[in-house]
């Protein structure tokens, strides 16, 4: 399905038909895959929903880091002067820049992990919302990233790449990073080491008494998932081509949370599926305009009423389709 989508998007550009159509398509696919990032990291964290939700909240803002880097390095910008590196190099360096954005976000994740040592549940969630506000306010007042007007120029980088060789870069990179993320998370949570996080989620006191260093594990969980959210933020910025502090408001994190809750918080494949389905749903309901935001919360209410553990609970896809186990080991 995905290659088809890229073909379509690709054709759209070549034929010069309706460029809007192709843009929409890329955004659609992009969004859904971006969803994975937000989401899968919850699955990683074994998601004590509230405990880990903060991450995308403020880290999506770290899309700024990689956007800034890529713009400074590769484009002629009136503010940053001449580009530091030729545009053709962005072809290879693009993933590096996205990963640097991820690392920067991971480091900030470290700072927010520290309050998590003493605070739990709802209180920790409140702290993370506070951090979100701090970051947004800070960005609003930083002139070199455009303040509240936002920051752009990322599209120039993409165009620069397309000048060298025509290819749906963003679609490719978003999908690649999505697969990479799921891969990393799966490796992490299937190890005895990573299971420590799930243990903390289920019973923190028991985890401590069974020799799990909970502070260390929280630090790792926060940094790891912040890093992944930072990567998704970077991709988001390049797909849209424009970021402003408002892009990373609480609504964005709510969207991501809904994806996780719909799927079931302990399920990796569930999160991926639900991210895709939810994005498609959002797009399908677009003609309803504002009523979309009546219908979607309604769906959420119904799910919470009749299936509070989410559609898949903590089951993986292989639980429903045992034959899949032959091809892929889920857990």
């Amino acid at each position: 399905m995905l290659p088809q989508a890229s073909d379509l998007g690709w054709d759209g550009n070549v034929l010069g038909l309706d460029s809007w159509g192709s843009a929409e398509l890329v955004t659609l696919a992009g969004d859904s895959v971006k969803g994975h990032f937000f989401i899968t990291h919850y699955a990683v964290a074994g998601a004590k929903g509230a405990t880990k939700e903060f991450i995308d909240r403020y880290n999506a803002a770290y899309g700024y880091v990689s956007s800034l880097l890529s713009v400074i390095l590769f484009t002629v910008d009136k503010e940053t002067g001449l580009s530091l590196l030729p545009a053709s190099m962005s072809l290879y360096l693009f993933p590096v820049i996205i990963i640097i954005g991820g690392i920067a976000a991971g480091i900030v994740g470290l700072l927010v992990a520290i309050p998590s040592f003493k605070t739990r549940d709802d209180y920790l969630a409140i702290i993370t919302i506070a951090v979100n506000f701090i970051i947004i306010t800070a960005l609003n007042n930083m002139d070199f990233v455009g303040g509240s007007r936002g920051y752009m120029g990322m599209k120039k980088v993409i165009y620069g790449m397309e000048d060298v060789f025509k290819f749906p870069y963003m679609l490719f990179w978003v999908i690649t990073f999505a697969i990479f993320t799921v891969f990393l998370i799966r490796r992490f949570i299937t190890s005895t080491y990573g299971k420590g996080i799930i243990a903390i989620k289920q019973d923190e006191v028991a985890a401590e008494i069974m020799s799990v260093d909970t502070n260390h594990m929280k630090l790792v969980a926060f940094m790891f998932s912040s890093g992944l959210a930072g990567i998704s933020g970077g991709l988001f910025a390049h797909v849209i081509g424009y970021v402003n502090p408002g892009s990373f408001s609480i609504l964005k994190s709510t969207e991501a949370l809904v994806m996780v809750y719909l799927a079931g918080m302990g399920s990796l494949s569930g999160s991926v599926i639900s991210a895709i389905l939810f994005t498609i749903l959002l797009e399908l309901l677009r003609p309803l305009q504002i009523f979309k935001w009546v219908l979607i919360p309604l769906i959420l209410i119904l799910v919470m009423q009749f299936r509070p553990e989410g559609l898949m609970g903590d089951k993986e896809l292989s639980h429903f389709f045992p034959k899949l186990k032959k091809y892929y080991k889920f857990k």
Binding site: I198, A199, D203, V205, A206, I209
Partner: peptide, 11 residues
């Protein structure tokens, strides 16, 4: 061990 059993019930 604990007075009220504290196993990880979903593992």
């Amino acid at each position: 061990t604990f007075q009220n059993i504290r196993l990880w019930h979903d593992m």
